[in-house]
Simulated scan of single mutants.
Amino acid sequence: MSKTLLLLAEGFEMYEASVFVDVLGWNLIDGDGTSQLATCALRKTIRSTFDVPVTVDVTVDELNLDEYDALAIPGGFIEYNFYSDAYDERFLEVIRQFHANGKIIASICVAALPLGKSGILRGKNATTYNKKDGIRQKTLAEFGVNVLNQPIVIDGNIITSWNPSTAMDVAFELLKRLTSEKQMNMMKEIMGF
C-alpha cells in the first residue's frame, strides 16, 4: 500500500489538487487498491483559490513523514496568497525531507516554485507556468533551475508541469510510479481517458 501526501498551500488551485484525489482514489476503489492519499497544510483549515474552504487531514506540525511514499503539490494563485504558505520554511522543509529520502515529488504549474525555493531543483531540469510572458519560468530559473519549455518535465523522482492542462497527466504519472505502467493504463481506461 502506498500513501501520498497532498501538500496544500493557502490559495491552492482546487482542480490541480482534485486530480490527485481522483486518480489515486479511483485506483484505491476500482484499481489495485494500493493507493491512499492524505491532505496536509500549515493549518487545519485553509482556503483555495476562489475562496473555497478546505479542512485537511493533518497539519505539517503533526506529520510523520515516514508514513508517506510520495508528495503531490498543486499550484495556486498569488491573488489568494499562495506564496505566503508555499514559501514558508515549514512547507519547504517538507519538500526537502521527501527529496532527501528519495521519494517521488509531483507538482503542477507554479508548485514548481516552492520546489525551486527549497533548493531541490538546483541544477536540475524542470518547468512551471508558461503563460503571461513566462514570468514564473524566469522566477524558477532564478533558483538555479534549468527551465525547459515543455508541458511535463521529469528529472529523477521529481515531476513538474507547466499549467493546469497537464494536471491529469501528472496525476497518472504519479500513479504509474507508485504502481506500474500497466496499472496506470488500466485506470486511464476505467476513468475514460
Rank of each mutant, 00 (worst) to 15 (best):
Glu189Lys: 15
Met184Ile: 07
Phe143Gln: 13
Leu8Asn: 03
Phe20Glu: 00
Leu7His: 04
Leu121Glu: 07
Trp26Tyr: 13
Arg96Gln: 09
Val19Met: 01
Gly119Gln: 11
Asn157Trp: 07
Gly33Leu: 08
Leu121Phe: 05
Thr55Gln: 08
Thr49Asp: 01
Lys182Met: 09
Val19Gln: 04
Leu28Lys: 04
Lys138Tyr: 06
Met184Asn: 03
Asp66Tyr: 03
Lys132Met: 15
Phe91Leu: 02
Asn130Ala: 01
Glu79Gly: 11
Val60Gln: 05
Thr55Pro: 04
Lys124Tyr: 09
Cys109Ala: 05
Ala41Asn: 10
Cys40Arg: 04
Thr128Gly: 06
Lys103Asn: 01
Asn125Cys: 10
Asn27His: 12
Ser107Leu: 11
Ala17Thr: 14
Gly123Pro: 05
Asn64Phe: 03
Asn130Ile: 01
Arg43Asn: 06
Phe12Trp: 12
Pro114Lys: 05
His99Lys: 12
Lys3Arg: 15
Leu5Cys: 09
Arg122Ile: 13
Ile95Trp: 15
Ala86Arg: 00
Glu10Arg: 10
Thr160Gln: 03
Ala106His: 14
Lys44Met: 13
Val56Gln: 05
Thr179Ser: 11
Glu89Asn: 10
Glu89Met: 10
Lys138Ser: 12
Met168Trp: 11
Asn185Lys: 15
Ile73Cys: 01
Gly33Lys: 12
Val19Gly: 02
Val153Gln: 01
Thr55Leu: 08
Lys103Tyr: 08
Thr49Arg: 02
Thr49Pro: 00
Lys3Tyr: 04
Ala100Glu: 09
Glu79Ser: 14
Pro151Gln: 06
Trp162Tyr: 05
Asn125Gln: 13
Asn27Glu: 11
Asp51Glu: 13
Gly75His: 12
Ile108Ser: 01
Asp30Pro: 00
Phe143Cys: 15
Lys44Tyr: 14
Phe98Asn: 00
Leu174Cys: 08
Ser161Trp: 12
Leu65Phe: 08
Lys3Val: 09
Gln97Tyr: 06
Thr59Phe: 05
His99Asp: 07
Gln36Cys: 10
Ile152Arg: 04
Ala41Phe: 14
Phe12Leu: 02
Gly76Lys: 03
Gln36Thr: 10
Leu24Phe: 12
Gly123Trp: 09
Leu63Ala: 12
Ile95His: 10
Gly123Tyr: 10
Val170Ser: 00
Glu10Ser: 03
Ile29Asp: 15
Ile154Glu: 08
Leu37Gln: 10
Thr160Cys: 04
Asp155Thr: 09
Asp32Phe: 15
Asp22Leu: 00
Glu13Thr: 12
Asn185Gly: 04
Leu37Ser: 14
Asp169Ala: 11
Gln137Gly: 02
Phe193Ile: 08
Tyr87Glu: 05
Asn185Ala: 05
Val58Asn: 04
Ala112His: 09
Ile73Ala: 02
Ser35Arg: 01
Asn163Thr: 11
Met184Val: 09
Gly192Ala: 07
Asp69Met: 08
Leu113Cys: 02
Ser48Val: 13
Cys40Asp: 07
Thr127Val: 06
Arg96Ile: 03
Leu121Arg: 00
Glu89Thr: 10
Thr166Asp: 04
Phe50Cys: 02
Asp22Val: 00
Ile105Phe: 13
Pro74Lys: 05
Met14Leu: 11
Glu142Gly: 13
Leu178Ser: 05
Ile78Leu: 11
Ser118Phe: 14
Met168Ile: 09
Val110Ala: 02
Val23His: 08
Gln137Glu: 15
Met191Ser: 07
Ile152Ser: 07
Ala126Glu: 10
Gln137Tyr: 03
Lys117Thr: 07
Arg47Glu: 06
Trp162Gly: 00
Asp169Ser: 13
Ile78Met: 10
Ile108Phe: 13
